[in-house]
Simulated scan of single mutants.
Amino acid sequence: MTGNGYLDGAPPDVVSFNRAELGLILAVYGRFVAAGEWRDYGISHLKDRAVFSVFRRAAEHPLYRIEKRPAFALRQGAFSVVAMDGRIEKRGRDLSQVLRVFDRKLIRAIDG
């Protein structure tokens, strides 16, 4: 394995979420759907990043984007949660820790 984490030294054509990452994201998504906060999602696999976008209603801007950017893995961490206004809510190397930013938001959604 080379220093960049790829077996042949070349990055893949597109970045995607693996099964475990997608499972963690969908677990959070399902909790917010059950709370009536989120109703739709979209997944984009791009050359430099994978993006899971969540929407309150279809045909609007995403409320949040959960991004995976392998190029940032050694710096700030490959995973981030980005709010609708572009503000980075949380960033890190461990997706489960990054997704914990939604724990407080879910409690407010249920209580509110």
Score class of each variant (00 low, 15 high):
E60F: 10
R104W: 12
E67C: 12
L26H: 06
S16N: 15
I110D: 02
D85W: 06
E21M: 04
A78D: 00
F17E: 06
S44T: 09
I66F: 02
S96D: 15
D13G: 00
R108Y: 11
G30H: 14
Y64A: 07
G86E: 06
K90H: 11
R56S: 14
F72A: 06
R100M: 00
L46N: 12
P70I: 09
G77Y: 03
F17R: 04
L74R: 15
G36A: 08
R69H: 04
F55G: 00
E21P: 09
N4W: 08
G112D: 07
G86T: 01
D85M: 08
R19G: 01
A35E: 07
V98E: 06
D103H: 10
R100Q: 06
K90L: 09
I66S: 02
G30W: 13
L63V: 09
A50L: 02
D48A: 09
V51T: 08
L46A: 11
D111L: 10
A59N: 08
L95I: 08
R108A: 12
G36K: 08
N4H: 09
F52E: 06
I88C: 07
I88L: 01
F17I: 04
S96M: 13
P70Q: 10
Y6A: 13
L63N: 03
K68D: 08
G9F: 04
H45P: 03
A78S: 00
A50M: 06
R87Y: 14
A83N: 03
S53F: 05
E67K: 11
L74M: 13
R91H: 06
E37G: 03
Y6N: 15
S80N: 08
S44D: 13
G86Q: 08
G42K: 06
R69E: 13
A83W: 01
A50R: 03
S16K: 13
V33R: 13
E67W: 03
Q97Y: 01
P11M: 03
L24S: 07
D103G: 06
R93P: 08
V101P: 01
S80L: 07
A109G: 12
A34D: 12
Q76H: 13
F102Y: 10
R69L: 07
L22M: 14
Y41L: 15
W38F: 15
F79D: 07
G36V: 05
R65E: 15
G92T: 10
G9D: 00
K105P: 00
R19T: 09
I66Q: 02
A59L: 05
V28R: 04
E21V: 09
Q97E: 05
L99Q: 12
F79G: 04
G3A: 10
A109H: 14
A20F: 13
L63R: 11
T2V: 03
I25P: 06
E89C: 05
K68A: 04
G86M: 03
I107V: 15
Q76S: 11
L7A: 07
M84L: 05
A59D: 07
A20Y: 12
Q76N: 09
L99S: 14
K105A: 11
W38K: 11
